[in-house]
């Protein structure tokens, strides 16, 4: 869901490109860290956790916690380790079949 961002840029970025996230189009700065760019665009949650389906979002920003993972080209990747490029299509990670796992 798109809301006002809790973050702001020190200097407004230029060279924006179109990125699809969870079915919506965002104008994000080319070459910017994807997790950071989504946060700045007001995307609060990038996946739901298997088990509780609770919303999760970027947490460590250094490739360690795996909270910011998203799906790109069918693969699960860490948004904080990806750079924004034109035409990127990013899917929100949801538990398989939209159901929580049996535990």
């Amino acid at each position: 869901m798109k809301t006002a961002s809790p973050f702001e840029y020190l200097a407004q970025p230029t060279n924006l490109v179109a990125v699809r996230f969870d079915g919506q189009t965002y104008q994000l700065p080319k070459g910017e860290n994807l997790a950071a760019a989504l946060l700045a665009a007001g995307v609060r949650s990038t996946r739901e956790n298997p088990g509780s389906n609770a919303p999760r979002a970027a947490f460590c920003m250094m490739g360690a916690c795996y909270e910011c993972r998203v799906r790109i080209d069918g693969a699960s990747v860490q948004a904080c380790m990806i750079q924004v490029r034109d035409g990127l299509v990013v899917e929100k990670m949801q538990p398989i079949g939209g159901q929580s796992y049996e535990r």
Binding site: E8, A37, A58, F59, C60, M62
Partner: peptide, 19 residues
């Protein structure tokens, strides 16, 4: 969402100029 490590906040500033 919205709870982050403080170092993550600093990385956002260093890397992306986000505060």
């Amino acid at each position: 969402p919205g709870v982050m490590m403080a170092g993550a906040g600093q990385i956002l500033l260093k890397q992306s100029g986000l505060v």
